Each structure stands twice: as structure tokens, then as C-alpha cells.
Amino acid sequence: MIFTDSVPVSGVRRTADGYLVAEAFVARTGIQDYLGSEIDPNNEHGLRDVPIVKVYRPESSVFHKDAMNSYAYRPMTNDHPGGDGVNSQNWKDVAVGNTGGEVIRDGQRVKVPLVLMDATAISDFEAGKRQLSMGYGAEIIFQDGVTPEGDPYHVSLGPMKMNHLSLVHSARAGEEFRIGDSKPNTPTGGHDMADALRKLLVDGISIDVTEQGAQAIEKLNTKLADAATATKTLTDAHATAIALKDGELAKKDDEITKLKAAVISDADIDKRVTARADLLTKAKTIADADYTGKTDAEIRKAVVIAKLGDAAVTGKADAYIDARFEILVEDAAKNPANDPFRQHMIHQDSAAGGDDSEKARLKMISDMQTAHLPKA
């Protein structure tokens, strides 16, 4: 499994050939922090959802004979090459120097010499790109345990095997020897290490998390915010739709109310028929004509015009015309002789008789019919 580890540099100097040489601590024993998703991405060992997995590098891992031999004559790169690290296929393209052969154990750390030979890499170093990150492989042993110092851990590493040493702007770990910088592929292909802890405010609480943990939390927060926005959008759209439906229902209710108001009862119909018949009778009493299709107001106006002429209604309001009509009705009631029906009957009766006796009979009938009226 390929790991990376930030390392400090000391004793930096330039050679007569322009190379840059230095010494660096490349490994140490102890516990490093990983993300559970990095150590056990498929959750085969139940660690994927563990926020921080403690990984123990014992002396048998760091100072194993094979591990010590692997620290010597390793290629140096300007940034990590990615993938499975450096091999014979890409060495010519990515190598900018190498580590030396004098590998020394210094307490719980390993120190090696190094040389940068590429002019661009040297210029980058002198311009401020001064951190080193080691890429190495190691077997992960999934078994809980406790260090000799009494610190518990989740997994431990087998013998380390250094692959390369990279010049980087900033090793993610930020502090000495913290693992971090490569991407996980397969159990033998690579691993994305936990970043340096940084403070993050979560729901008003300040917590310390790795850079990757912070990114995961921020991504989740973004998704939550997006979900909240989407929910609000849906809620607003739903509220708008409900409001439109309510408006349509209110409009329908108003139409129903109007239709109900427009429906008249049988009693109302009788009243209207009686009133219409009464109006037609009065109109014909004053001016016998065909009033079919006319409104009540049009009938009154036609009667007034027939009796008094157009000048009687020109420029006059409906109330005035109605009043003139009622006066004509009253006048007609005072003079039944003007009743067209009565005149028609008399005319028919007179036409039926041709002699004086018949005329006298008709006159007597007329006198009897008008005897109750006041004399003129």
C-alpha cells in the first residue's frame, strides 16, 4: 500500500555543480491518524465510518532490515507522480534527484541524505517550495492493539518500503511525519492520508478535523443547503398552486352564488307575469300597439311618445318618462271611453244594427255603463 509522509529538511547546501544536497528524516515510529474511509473504503473491516482510525507504525515496521534498505537511493520527484509512484517506466520523466545510501536510525526516526539535481526543482525549492513528502508502501494489519506506551490503535503497519521522496509546496499533514498526500487505489496501489487537523464550526460548535474531513463536512453542508433551497422552492411552488386553486374555487363559488341569485321561484315568476300583463293592459288602454319584445321601460316610453310625441321624452330621464306614463294611466282610468277595448266593442255593436231602434238600444247600454261616472 502506497503512503506519503511529510518530512523535515536540514543541512541544506549547494554543491560546486549546482546540485542541492540536504539531510531529511523520512520515517518514525508511533501512531498516525487516518480517515476510516481511507483505511477501509469498502468497509470490509467495519472501519469505513470511523472518523479517525489510529494507525500504528512499530519499530518492526520502520526499522525492519528491508525497510531500512528501501530508504536508500530512492528517486526524488517534484510533486508526487500519482498512480503507483515511481518505476522504471516513468523514472526518466519524473525523477529530479535521489536519496543517498547512508541510512541512519536516529532514536525513533530514520535520517537519509538527499540530492536535488534538476535546476527547476532546485529553483522551486529556493523560491519557497521546501517541504518533502515521502511515498512508501506497507501492509495494513487490521487488528486492534495498544502500543508499549499504552496508546490504543485500530490497525498497524508491516515493514515499510520507500518508493520515492517528493518536493511539495505544502505537505498536507503540516506537522512532522504526519501521513498524507497520495490517493487510495487498491490495497497495494495507494492511499489518501489524513490531512492536518483544522478548526471547523459545525452547528455552532468548534471542532478539530482533518482537511479531508472538513471538505466532507462542507460538502454535506452544501448539499443540506441545496436540499433546503430545493425544499423551499417546492414549498413555495406548492403554496402558489394552492393559492391559485383557492382563487379558482372562490371564483366558482361566486359564480354559483350569482347563478343561485339569478334563479327565480315560481312565486316570483307569477309576480313577474302578473306585473307584465298589468303593464301591457295599461299600455294598450292608452295606446294600442304591438309591444312584443320590448322591455318595461321601452313600453312606457313608446306609450308616452304615442300619446304626447317625441318631444315629451327627448332628453328626459327614465324616472320622468315613468312618471308621465303613470299620469296617462290615471287619465285613462278617469275616462273609460278612451279604453280601446270598450271602443272596439261599441264599434262592433253599432256596426251590427242598422236602424234607429238599434242605435237607441246601444246608447242605453252605454249610458248604463257610464252612469256611475261623474258628469263632466
Results as ranks from 00 to 15, higher is better:
residue 3 F to N: 11
residue 6 S to V: 09
residue 9 V to S: 02
residue 12 V to R: 04
residue 20 L to N: 02
residue 27 A to E: 10
residue 27 A to F: 04
residue 29 T to H: 05
residue 32 Q to I: 03
residue 35 L to Y: 08
residue 41 P to Q: 00
residue 43 N to D: 15
residue 43 N to S: 12
residue 53 V to M: 06
residue 59 E to G: 15
residue 65 K to E: 13
residue 67 A to G: 01
residue 70 S to L: 03
residue 73 Y to T: 06
residue 80 H to T: 00
residue 83 G to P: 00
residue 84 D to K: 09
residue 89 Q to D: 15
residue 92 K to Y: 08
residue 92 K to W: 11
residue 93 D to K: 14
residue 94 V to F: 06
residue 95 A to G: 03
residue 99 T to F: 01
residue 99 T to V: 04
residue 104 I to H: 12
residue 107 G to Q: 10
residue 112 V to M: 01
residue 116 L to Q: 10
residue 118 D to C: 04
residue 131 Q to G: 12
residue 133 S to N: 13
residue 134 M to K: 04
residue 138 A to Q: 05
residue 138 A to E: 11
residue 142 F to N: 14
residue 148 P to F: 06
residue 148 P to W: 03
residue 166 S to Y: 05
residue 171 A to G: 12
residue 172 R to V: 09
residue 172 R to Q: 14
residue 175 E to M: 14
residue 180 G to W: 03
residue 186 T to K: 14
residue 187 P to A: 04
residue 198 R to N: 14
residue 198 R to M: 14
residue 199 K to I: 13
residue 200 L to P: 08
residue 205 I to C: 02
residue 217 I to M: 14
residue 223 K to H: 08
residue 233 T to A: 13
residue 240 T to E: 12
residue 247 G to N: 14
residue 258 K to W: 08
residue 264 I to W: 00
residue 272 R to P: 00
residue 275 A to F: 00
residue 276 R to I: 00
residue 281 T to N: 10
residue 289 A to L: 11
residue 289 A to W: 03
residue 293 G to K: 05
residue 296 D to R: 04
residue 300 R to V: 00
residue 303 V to W: 13
residue 310 D to K: 13
residue 312 A to E: 11
residue 324 R to E: 15
residue 325 F to D: 02
residue 327 I to N: 02
residue 333 A to K: 12
residue 341 F to W: 11
residue 345 M to Q: 06
residue 349 D to I: 01
residue 358 E to M: 12
residue 363 K to C: 00
residue 367 D to V: 01
residue 368 M to K: 05
residue 370 T to S: 14
residue 370 T to C: 01
